[in-house]
Every structure is written in structure tokens, then in C-alpha cells.
């Protein structure tokens, strides 16, 4: 095991966690048993590696924890990186897990005779106002965003807006809510991110970890 001085790895709670665990193990990191149980109230976990702790936070917060230097490394979706665009973050490795896409969806009955090229102003419910605005403004469409933190699929049905921008993996949630995917904004995978200052001052240690994760990804 490489010796590291008090490093913190931030991983997102929820969906990605089950896919991240085998990757951690292949990289030689075994978190304490509480880590993989949902009912633990702990947020910070020891690992078998001396001085390496794991924190479990909300996926959007992983980027913020690493950007502010609270954690030196993190697992985060490319969607979150696009939304925040923190200059203090490096994303040196595509972990290849959490595969999905960031897409625009609208009610099925509307999509039949909707012509996206004629949009000039639209209202969108999304967790990603920045990405959404940038995507539409590149096409000359002014997007008014309703920032929601979840359950975007409800917004069209309840008359708040007609379109949503959200992560789609199987498309089941969309279908269940009478929505269809009309346009894909980006392919998303989970990335390994590193804090810029940490990568400069702990170059050797962090590069060793990045290399181990790279081997873990390639070995899968």
C-alpha cells in the first residue's frame, strides 16, 4: 500500500455507489463495513489504507468538496462537472461507470408536431440551469430555467413548463410520466476528479492513486 498523508476521497451517495465499490476494491481500497450499508449515519469512513478516508456526499456536492479542497479526490458525474465548471478541478480519468445521458424530454403528445428549429423561448425544469442555458443559447434559443432538485418529470404534467433537461439512463422514468426524449445534450460517465492544489503539492501520491484507478478501470 502506498503511504499517504490524510487524503480524503469524496464519493456520491446513491446510484453510483454500488458501481463504485468494486472499482474501489480493485484499486486496493476497502472501506470499513458501515460504508456500504445505507442505515449508517456516519458520513466519513476509514479504509484499509492508512490516512485515506472516504466521505459520502450528494453527487452535486462531490465537485464542491473537491474544488474547495475539503477532499483531494472524488468520483463525480460529467453532468456535475459541466454544470459547475470549477477551474480548481482536474478530471484525469473516465471511470466508465454511471453511464447515462443528459437529455431534453417533453410530453409524448406534444412531440408529435413539435419542431425544435422553431423554438425561440422555452421554459425548462432542470437540475442543470447552467448547462441548459448554454446548450440552448448556442442555438439562439432563450431558455428560462426552473431549478428543481428532483422529480423534474412531474413539472410538465403539473403545467409548470413543457420541457425538462435531466439524466436519462433506461428511460423508464420518462415513459412512466408520459415523456419522450427529444434531444441528447451529452453522454455522461463518472469521472475521477482531483483538486488542483493537491495534485501540485502531493503530485507523487495523487498520481499514484490516479494510476491505480486507471489500472482498476482497464482491468474491468
Amino acid at each position: 500500500m502506498p503511504q499517504t498523508e490524510s487524503l480524503v476521497l469524496a464519493v456520491p451517495a446513491g446510484r453510483i455507489l454500488t458501481q463504485a465499490l468494486p472499482l474501489l476494491q480493485r484499486a486496493g481500497i476497502n472501506p470499513e463495513p458501515d460504508f456500504s450499508t445505507d442505515n449508517s449515519r456516519k458520513l466519513r469512513f476509514q479504509t484499509n489504507v492508512d490516512g485515506l478516508n472516504i466521505v459520502r456526499v450528494r453527487s452535486f456536492d462531490v465537485a464542491t468538496f473537491v474544488a474547495f479542497g475539503g477532499a483531494q479526490l472524488g468520483f463525480v458525474g460529467a453532468d456535475v462537472l459541466m454544470e459547475f465548471d470549477y477551474p480548481e478541478l482536474y478530471a484525469p480519468l473516465d471511470l466508465g461507470i454511471g453511464r447515462c445521458r443528459l437529455s431534453i424530454a417533453e410530453p409524448k403528445k406534444m412531440s408529435a408536431d413539435d419542431d425544435p428549429s422553431r423554438w425561440s423561448h422555452i421554459r425548462v425544469a432542470t437540475k442543470y440551469p447552467r448547462v441548459t442555458r448554454a446548450h440552448f443559447s448556442a442555438r439562439g434559443v432563450q431558455a428560462e430555467c426552473i431549478k428543481l432538485n428532483g422529480a423534474m418529470e412531474l413539472a410538465p404534467a403539473l403545467g409548470m413548463c413543457q420541457r425538462i433537461v435531466d439524466l436519462v439512463s433506461s428511460g423508464k422514468t420518462l415513459k412512466a410520466n408520459g415523456l419522450v426524449e427529444v434531444e441528447q445534450i451529452a453522454d455522461i460517465t463518472t469521472r475521477l476528479i482531483a483538486n488542483r492544489t493537491a495534485l501540485k503539492t502531493l503530485s507523487q501520491e495523487l498520481n499514484t492513486w490516479i494510476e491505480r484507478f486507471r489500472e482498476a478501470v482497464n482491468g474491468s
Binding site: 482536474y90 478530471a91 484525469p92 480519468l93 473516465d94 453522454d187 460517465t189 469521472r191 482531483a194
Partner: peptide, 23 residues
């Protein structure tokens, strides 16, 4: 600048391997 390996891999530019090695 962002050491964004994932995005570089998806880019279709000449010299991509060279840029990867530089990164």
C-alpha cells in the same frame, strides 16, 4: 488545462495521442 481525459478521448482531432501523452 482541466486534465479532462474523458473529453479528450471523445474528441476527433489529429494528434490526440500526443495530447494524451502531454496530459
Amino acid at each position: 488545462d482541466r486534465k479532462d481525459t474523458g473529453s479528450l478521448k471523445e474528441m476527433d482531432v489529429p494528434g490526440r495521442e500526443l495530447f494524451e501523452s502531454l496530459m
